[in-house]
């Protein structure tokens, strides 16, 4: 298999080794886009291992960090060669009003980023106005709403209602998640997508932008 060492380093979630192997391959004149594709596949494998629970959050976080570092190197290299980095879509993500939990949102930010989305993280305790302002400014495709407590789930609904009140609901796909959020809740408030974890969020986001 091509770039096996890069892939293995990624599966070992060892960012230093990933960077080292990428640089070695680039020095040999390898195509950065081809390396990037191998890393993307490795991330997919990590996602599968995560759903079987053979890997867990710390490894996904490390993998995401490694992917970000790889992305920086490969992106710069691709630009030098006038190759475009494909942007799958633009996402505005945040934790909703009244909620200050960051872990889940940060994980999703990481996995979407490394999957090729351009992600704007607007932080915690964010009002509907905050979400919409940034989404409009950045021309977002997706708005991601994180809520970790049953007490703050209604704030996800508030964002959807705010979009409706502004008459711009159809401009965005709304993705919801968080420890207590379920598919039923997502359906009830009319969200476009739900995922129970950060790895699954990538598939849902891709589906929402038609990829």
């Amino acid at each position: 298999m091509a770039f096996e060492k890069v892939r293995d380093a990624m599966l070992a979630t060892d960012s230093e080794l990933v960077v080292k192997e990428i640089n070695a391959e680039l020095a040999k004149g390898a195509d950065p886009k081809a390396i990037f594709d191998v890393l993307t596949d490795a991330m997919g494998e990590i996602g599968d291992l995560f759903s079987e629970m053979k890997m867990f959050l710390p490894e996904v976080m490390l993998a995401t960090e490694a992917m970000n570092e790889a992305f920086a190197i490969l992106g710069a290299e691709m630009q030098k060669q006038d190759q475009a980095i494909e942007n799958l879509g633009t996402v505005v993500i945040g934790t909703v009003k009244g909620d200050v939990h960051t872990v889940g949102k940060d994980m999703v930010t990481g996995t979407l980023n490394t999957a090729g989305f351009k992600v704007f993280d607007i932080g915690i305790d964010s009002s509907p106005q905050d979400f919409v302002e940034i989404a409009e400014r950045e021309g977002a495709d997706i708005i991601g709403l994180s809520a970790l407590m049953t007490a703050t789930m209604p704030s996800q609904k508030d964002v959807i209602e705010f979009l409706e009140s502004k008459g711009i609901r159809e401009k965005y796909k709304v993705l919801v998640g968080g420890g207590v959020v379920t598919q039923e809740w997502a359906d009830e408030i009319g969200a476009d997508g739900y995922s129970k974890d950060a790895v699954g969020a990538v598939d849902v986001a891709k589906r929402l932008v038609g990829r």
Partner: peptide
Amino acid sequence: IELSTSAAFYDIFMREMN
């Protein structure tokens, strides 16, 4: 000390899960 807004908490939590 409010942990949910502690910047350090996330990294330490990830590490300490092992």
